[in-house]
């Protein structure tokens, strides 16, 4: 392997390579995938001077640790710390990899020294990066200068955990190479507002195609009751716990096209929100669709957390 490599010791619950995904291929049966918290990915890439197409690690709930191995050959996009304005007297030879941690909040450290989120940080060669358990949010985005490398499948390095496309989820002992998706120097530090943890997540819903399959009481419950994020939540979908949504029509539909954010209601009456790796077609009626602006927020919802739905502005 040429260039530095990230040697994964512990991936935590689930760690995958994600970029902006593979939109526009649903007609071939291929899901959009990509980072669930797209804002966190975009921020990490901007902090690191990467292109928008650079891939990062999506780390679910934390518990991640890895060691950075130095270059075995000429460094690629990752190891050029000299370009960082805050390190003007940086030696020519790279001595590490610039990284940025965005998305969920939790303790993070390099060889025991803590570092904060939403900033470019140098990860020196030979040291160990640890990300503790998330204390707010559920998905960390670990960006690296140049992006994480992985086979490009249908135009994306993203891992699709349902269809098995892209690099499989990380396992202990995996070594990750660094790509060269660099757009420019690492920008001067910019102020990034920290997310405020809310007691109750508020998620906007737009109308779905099969709202008429449900009783009026279902709409009242959907918008009037708090919903609990169940443990059955992953990149494919998120099952919510609350009052069963009453149908006025029974049975299943012939499968029809689905979108990210579709709120499907199986016969149990408990809704499932489809996420980026969800099936591109499905046979359960969709009562509503999570507004695009709320998807990043929903991606950070934790099992056991409560959320409320409100109507999206038209």
């Amino acid at each position: 392997m040429i260039g530095p490599a990230i040697l994964v010791e512990a991936p935590g619950l689930l760690a995958t390579v994600q970029d902006r995904g593979r939109p526009g291929r649903a007609a071939q049966g291929i899901a959009p995938s990509g980072a669930l918290d797209r804002g966190a990915l975009a921020l990490a890439n901007r902090l690191l001077g990467n292109t928008r197409d650079a891939a990062a690690l999506e780390i679910t709930m934390g518990g991640f640790s890895a060691v950075l191995l130095p270059s075995g050959g000429p460094a690629r996009g990752g190891g050029q710390p000299g370009v960082a304005p805050r390190e003007a007297d940086e030696p020519r030879e790279p001595r590490g990899l610039w990284i940025a941690l965005t998305g969920a909040r939790g303790d993070a450290e390099i060889d025991g020294r803590g570092f904060g989120p939403n900033q470019a940080v140098l990860w020196p060669f030979g040291t160990r990066l640890r990300i503790g358990m998330a204390v707010a949010g559920s998905r960390f985005c670990l960006g690296v200068r140049g992006g994480v490398d992985a086979p490009i499948v249908a135009g994306s390095r993203s891992s699709d955990v349902l269809a098995g496309l892209g690099r499989p989820p990380l396992a202990p002992g995996d070594a990750l190479a660094i790509a060269a998706e660099v757009a420019g120097p690492i920008p001067a530090a910019e102020p990034v507002p920290w997310g405020v943890t809310r007691a109750l997540l508020e998620v906007a819903l737009a109308p779905g195609p099969r709202a008429d399959w449900f009783a009026p009481s279902a709409s009242a419950a959907l918008f009037g009751e708090p919903w609990l994020v169940s443990n059955d939540a992953n990149r494919v979908g998120m099952r919510l716990l609350g009052p069963a949504l009453q149908r006025v029509r029974e049975g299943e539909l012939p499968s029809e096209g689905m979108v990210v954010g579709a709120v499907q209601v199986p016969p149990s009456g408990l809704p499932t929100v489809l996420l980026a790796d969800g099936p591109v077609t499905g046979g359960y009626p969709v009562i509503a669709v999570v507004a695009a602006a709320s998807l990043d927020l929903l991606a950070q919802a934790r099992p056991g957390e409560r959320l409320v739905f409100r109507r999206a502005l038209p």
Partner: peptide, 8 residues
């Protein structure tokens, strides 16, 4: 309707 960015 299928959300704000799609039609079924």
């Amino acid at each position: 309707p299928m959300g704000a960015r799609a039609v079924l």
